[in-house]
Write a protein that binds this DNA or RNA. Structure first.
Lengths: 339, 339
DNA sequence: GCCAAAAGTGTAAGCGCTTACAATTTCGTC
DNA sequence: GACGAAATTGTAAGCGCTTACACTTTTGGC
């Protein structure tokens, strides 16, 4: 198969009757290009189907035309959803989307940060999805010269989109309290350690505080975001002898796991125990899980848009913004008034 | 942050006392480099902390160092799973993974094939996941000069990895028949039209044939791969007045939907109706759904490896291979002997 | 109309690497 | 030892793009 010659900027220059330099400027919407030239170039470029070589642009000091999405894992529902939404936005803005999954492994994660400078040569920007960062990592990201935006990461020096995690947790907990439950267990995210002050945990605690209740350590257990994690966590809780009448899981998958564990121990939901999560996973509707819904695709698309904006006006100093999208309590069949 | 000058191959050449050319070859383990030179270069490079500029390598070498994964949608469980597995393989081979989701939209799909040549300038290879192709599209893919491999696509002129879909469907159907069911409904994939001869449908039919049963049109309905699709399909089946005692869904998500619809119509599973799918989605275990398990991540990884091989020896003429991985019937709680 | 300033355009020098091909060294053989 | 082949190394020409700077054209004020 004969490979047709690549369409270079040279070809566009010839077709449009202008110099390479002018074409280059026109293509990047730089000043000092007459409207006429602009038009000619645009026309020639589209006729030729010209796309700048990322490698050449980058080498010459320009940009790559691609961005990377970094997720702790690509398989989880939340991430797949956010990734696809972001990919659409990036594609519409002319960027290729490079996927980088940290695969929930510390080693991969470490390697990622070690190779940051190298990565900066291949992409213009970074969209981080719920990657928790040390302060050195934040510094490294700022130093590498890429535009950065994120989803679900509070308190970072770049644009972020997320939900008010503390409020969402408060909504879920408040719902349980309203139903008359006061022996509340929590399956908390253990990103950092077993019992830590994640925003969702804080929201849980605040709701209890408001009802003059305190968090009992035996009713708190750390868990990952998978069904299996949730199941193990709930099993441990039961093994401890904890007898909560309601359980708040930090995400729906963990709640599914809790549901399983409860069933395995002969406890029926919501008769004996009420369960609520956060997410509104499509399965939640199917299973009748009460939850606090969050707009996942919207978060991905929004953050992607912010990143694209940053990519356009690089030099403009810009105050990092933090956008919080609304969450909504959805009562279904796993929560019920305490008998 | 002052950016120190980048360490170039030139620096390594000077330090090692060799020419740039020799350094380049040594660094890439090409032949015709003495051991002594090899050693000197390695030493100088590591002392300088030299890392080749990806952009420059690519520009000079003619390759892009990235591959694209193309999926009909990125959100479905199967694709997220396969994508992550492939991404890992590509990453380990030094390739960036560009994600392209067709978003289940004909327009996006059309655009993708229209831009193929353009895409060929940005990636070296293509991994297609279950993209059904017209013969012109196959030709276009062959003509664009990219290395191609695929998952779940039979009869294509490049390496493919999949399962024996017909056999998997046969296994599922056979299981239902063994349990004494003969009024079987099928939620068939409607990629092309409502009732078509997809491999899975053929497998379903063959199992019936073997038992001297025929497929009744009223018991066949086309459906997409989502829960909601499955629910609609099952609802339609019930509305038609079809009273199957068992249902075979072409994938687990569709089976979940069927489960919902059945429950909504007061039919209990497996008491009144048995249900089986294909996939072994993690939720299936949770819900007790009988299914035919397929190794999803393995398929993605395998195909990715094949693509990497093709990328290495480009010119070698190569017979396209088709690898079929094993599937396994998993009996759980949604299938039961007919009463 | 004239001239300086502004606006638009072109020239050419790289960016850091790969790779023909030429030049040099090494080796084996008679 | 001498000689040709083989192995090793170096030279230099790009890869496709950006950008400082020089150059040409337009503009506007008087």
């Amino acid at each position: 198969m004969v490979r047709t010659h690549r369409v270079t900027i040279q070809d566009v220059a010839v077709l449009s009757g202008l110099s390479i330099c002018t074409v280059s400027r026109a293509l990047r919407n730089l000043p000092n290009v007459s409207e006429k030239a602009q038009r000619q170039v645009a026309e020639a470029a589209s006729k030729l189907g010209y796309k700048a070589s990322a490698a050449a642009s980058r080498l010459a000091g320009g940009t790559t035309g691609s961005v990377a999405i970094v997720a702790p894992t690509a398989t989880a529902w939340f991430f797949a959803q956010a990734v696809e939404a972001a990919e659409e936005v990036f594609g519409d803005s002319g960027y290729d989307t490079v996927l980088i999954s940290l695969r929930n492994k510390a080693s991969v994660r470490r390697q990622f940060f070690a190779d940051l400078e190298e990565l900066a040569q291949r992409v213009d920007g970074l969209l981080l999805l719920n990657v928790d960062l040390t302060s050195q990592e934040v510094e490294a990201l700022e130093a590498c010269g890429m535009a950065v935006a994120s989803v679900g990461m509070g308190n970072v020096p770049w644009d972020n989109v997320g939900i008010d995690d503390e409020h969402a947790a408060w909504q879920a907990t408040q719902h349980l309290l309203r139903l008359g439950h006061w022996d509340l267990a929590v399956l908390s995210s253990n990103e950092h350690s077993v019992v830590t002050e994640t925003p969702r945990f804080r929201g849980f605690k605040r709701a209890l505080d408001e009802h003059h209740l305190t968090v009992h350590p035996d009713f708190v257990v750390g868990t990952g975001p998978s069904i299996d994690d949730g199941r193990r966590a709930m099993t441990e809780l039961i093994a401890r002898g904890a007898k909560p009448t309601a359980v708040f899981a930090h995400c729906d998958e963990a709640a599914f796991g809790a549901l399983t564990a409860l069933r395995e121990h002969g406890l029926s939901v919501p008769k004996h125990v009420s369960v609520i999560g956060i997410d509104d996973h499509p399965m939640s509707w199917f299973l009748g899980l009460s939850t606090v819904a969050q707009p996942v695709a919207d978060q991905g698309a929004f953050a992607a848009n912010l990143l694209c904006e940053r990519l356009l006006n690089t030099e403009a100093s810009h105050q990092p913004s933090n956008h919080l999208l609304d969450t909504k309590l959805i009562e279904r069949k796993t929560t019920r008034h305490k008998r």
